[in-house]
Design a protein around this nucleic acid. Sequence first.
DNA 1: AATGAATGAGACTTCATTCAT
DNA 2: CATGAATGAAGTCTCATTCAT
Lengths: 182, 182, 182, 182
Amino acid sequence: MSPRADAVRNRSRVLAAADEVFVEKGTAASTEEVAKRAGVGVGTVFRHFPTKEELLEAVYEERLRQVGAEAAELAERADAGKAFHEFFTRLVENAGTKQTLSEALAAAGVDVDDAASPVRAQVRDSLGTLLDRAQQAGGVRRDVGVDEVIALLIGASQATRWTLDISMRARTLNVILDGLRP
Amino acid sequence: MSPRADAVRNRSRVLAAADEVFVEKGTAASTEEVAKRAGVGVGTVFRHFPTKEELLEAVYEERLRQVGAEAAELAERADAGKAFHEFFTRLVENAGTKQTLSEALAAAGVDVDDAASPVRAQVRDSLGTLLDRAQQAGGVRRDVGVDEVIALLIGASQATRWTLDISMRARTLNVILDGLRP
Amino acid sequence: MSPRADAVRNRSRVLAAADEVFVEKGTAASTEEVAKRAGVGVGTVFRHFPTKEELLEAVYEERLRQVGAEAAELAERADAGKAFHEFFTRLVENAGTKQTLSEALAAAGVDVDDAASPVRAQVRDSLGTLLDRAQQAGGVRRDVGVDEVIALLIGASQATRWTLDISMRARTLNVILDGLRP
Amino acid sequence: MSPRADAVRNRSRVLAAADEVFVEKGTAASTEEVAKRAGVGVGTVFRHFPTKEELLEAVYEERLRQVGAEAAELAERADAGKAFHEFFTRLVENAGTKQTLSEALAAAGVDVDDAASPVRAQVRDSLGTLLDRAQQAGGVRRDVGVDEVIALLIGASQATRWTLDISMRARTLNVILDGLRP
DNA sequence: AATGAATGAGACTTCATTCAT
DNA sequence: CATGAATGAAGTCTCATTCAT
């Protein structure tokens, strides 16, 4: 009801539209197209995200938020080993549609520029917990840390990204999952 | 004697320059910049590669050619299992500098558009031989084929692409190599 | 009140500038020059006319509109025969400055591609009426139709286009007008 | 057998190729294409015609030469009136294929820049004779001169250029021919 | 705050012309 | 003399960003 309400709603509409458009046409898609998809004017997009790069980063962060939520949820599971495997599987399946997930993950893993994003920290935390518990449950080898897991998630997403054949995708992912066993 | 000599040399200079530039600034780098790096005029670039896309494809093919050569060379080795591992390792190390190798590999693996590129066929062939021999030597599990290996190469390249820490890169790659064991 | 007001004004400024420039330097003149003449940026030209061809067509249509208006006006005249002659004369005089009028007319006459342009239909209508009335008044031979008249307008424009000498222009036009008599 | 012989032959091959290409694709066609059609390198084209404009002018002149020849031939005919009419008809029929004939004629008629081209003079001469004789034979009105006839030829060519329907073309031409009668 | 028209730098591409072979 | 590769100016068009309404 406050004028803020509309603004907030617009922000998420733009974000959702950007996600869709960037998935469909790649990140080279124009801001104009994002605006059209969101049903707003370009000006509105730039009001919320003063730069295309900031828009991209926001999209990535939004995806990370979802990854973090998934990790947090699965970290609660009793059977930590299975939970860890399911996490990998879900993510790789998403990667089919959300092509740039790996870029988002990459941003969480290594980028040092504005490292201190709380979202990134949260993802690393949840993922760390999930990994720890899986290792303690004997489901995952002990010589890998969060960074390696993130790298492997990126790798698995990319490896299966081009795969249309679903059984081949499974075989490929299995190699990585087997490699992660103790 | 042949006026072609210079043309051929220029073609490779452009190709090399394009490779460098695309590695450094991404494939969105301008053709003008490629020309500058090659020390030729833009017109020359477009004479050899009438479209930016054709230039990109040529760069990919060149990289594939190198990958194919490497696979062919290693397929000769007596110890097939070790050879296969070394192949993976070398490629992933290259991937650090040649960021788009995975895209080139992807083109070799799945794309169906102009499928019958001889270079792609050659890569698949050499890689197939290398894989076969490694499997017969008991160095690699038997439920993966060339396509899965290509996918994993792409994955491994991407997984380690963002890794500056060399020991972490080794740990990540090891997971995949372990996963490939019988 | 409407943000459109400026846009509309700009559209006509661009159109007018394009007309001028194309007359002065031919249709090969650059879009940049049109923009400069209109006092706007190139982007504005391309916003209104996404293609140079569309700009050209718009210029032609604008000229046709004027031709149609002239035909409609003269069709009202009591003395239909004289009106018809005056129509020819006026057009040919314009053709001196508006060199591409004949191309515009040609577009109205024969092109079948996007046939149903309302402007073209209107021109043919008005011209048809003017011709009919002139024929009934005994001022024009009966074995010519709108298409022939359009062709002759084009011909007359081109015939007199290169003529600097005004009396020679009159003599040339007279031949055609005489030929049109019953 | 002399080296000159080849050069001369090349010159006409280029000229013929240019004529064809310009007719088919318009005068904006590239010199490269002309060279390809002529079966020579671009360098050869530029050796014979140092500028594209000079090439164009040469093409025009060649066409004029043919027009002049036709006029000269028909000027010999006994029935001068009929001969004049046939001249018009032939030219207009050619104009269908040789679209730029009118431009060539225009160059002969009005251009003042390098007026003293012998070919142009010859055309005007032959045409003058043809016209004179037709006027004396009572086939053509006496208040038109060579310039008006050239203008009308241009006009007739353009008028019928867009006409696909052959009977309409005849009706249109007839108007002009009737207008030329005494 | 939102809108969308305007801007102009910059990308890709073409082509007349030059020049080494 | 012929060839065709190289050149680079110039043209068309796109798009991130700004700003008047």
